[in-house]
């Protein structure tokens, strides 16, 4: 009987084994990239909102403090969304007949909330709390980016576990003085490394072991 496989089959086998390893590696790499892509994390994606509310106008141009609208960011887990009444504090007088504000006026008339589209949305098995981050010196722009430049809000970071942990392992790389929390122009370089380590001690930030324990975020 003639040989079933020719001699070159040996090489084909070796090459295909190598190719298999390379292919598996590539597939794994592609998987990690896809998992971190904006397609799956929602990063950089702008949502269509019921009102074309612009942080660029209200924060960047008019200088309104975040807490004027997100009133509970210092005290509770949720940052809090402004009530329609809050919009009407100003818009009962200015731009009072702008067509862009009709949904706001309708909401005020009918006593129904405006239904904003969520931009940041952690899965519900993860626990997040704004008040502790604000109290320990993590600024809004560290996590949310330059909100004052955003005509419509998008998610600046992946919000994946590896992102949370990168900071929980080394918070001293990201913290700032409490007076600068709401400063959108703050850069990490504005404070030297030594000053940050002091600040970490002053704000009584706990050890890396405690901050990365699973039950901090999965409770």
């Amino acid at each position: 009987m003639a040989q079933f496989f020719s001699k070159s089959a040996n090489n084909i086998a070796r090459i295909s084994m190598l190719a298999g390893v390379v292919l598996a590696g590539t597939a794994f790499f592609v998987y990690t990239q896809v998992a971190r892509s904006s397609y799956l994390t929602g990063r950089y994606v702008e949502r269509q909102q019921p009102v074309q509310f612009s942080h660029k106008h209200h924060v960047g141009d008019d200088g309104i403090d975040c807490r004027y609208c997100h009133t509970t960011v210092e005290t509770t887990a949720s940052a809090g969304m402004p009530s329609t009444q809050t919009c009407m504090n100003c818009h009962s007088q200015i731009w009072a007949d702008s067509p862009y504000l009709e949904p706001v006026r309708a909401s005020f008339r009918d006593n129904r909330p405006i239904e904003w589209e969520r931009v940041h949305d952690l899965p519900e098995f993860a626990y997040f709390n704004h008040s502790i981050h604000v109290a320990k010196g993590v600024g809004c722009s560290t996590c949310h980016g330059q909100i004052d430049n955003m005509p419509s809000v998008f998610q600046e970071n992946t919000l994946q576990m590896e992102w949370c942990l990168a900071c929980h392992r080394e918070p001293e790389k990201f913290i700032r003085p409490k007076s600068e929390i709401y400063n959108m122009q703050w850069q990490d370089g504005d404070l030297s490394a030594a000053e940050r380590v002091d600040l970490k001690a002053k704000n009584k930030i706990r050890s890396k072991e405690m901050m990365t324990s699973c039950s901090v975020c999965h409770r």
Partner: peptide
């Protein structure tokens, strides 16, 4: 005050905040 009032009443309460300059009474 600097969160809630300054936008209309201005930094020293003279009534010249940013929103007033944008047309608020």
């Amino acid at each position: 005050y600097n969160i809630y009032c300054i936008v209309c009443h201005g930094p020293v309460g003279a009534g010249d905040g940013m929103i007033v300059r944008r047309g608020f009474g």
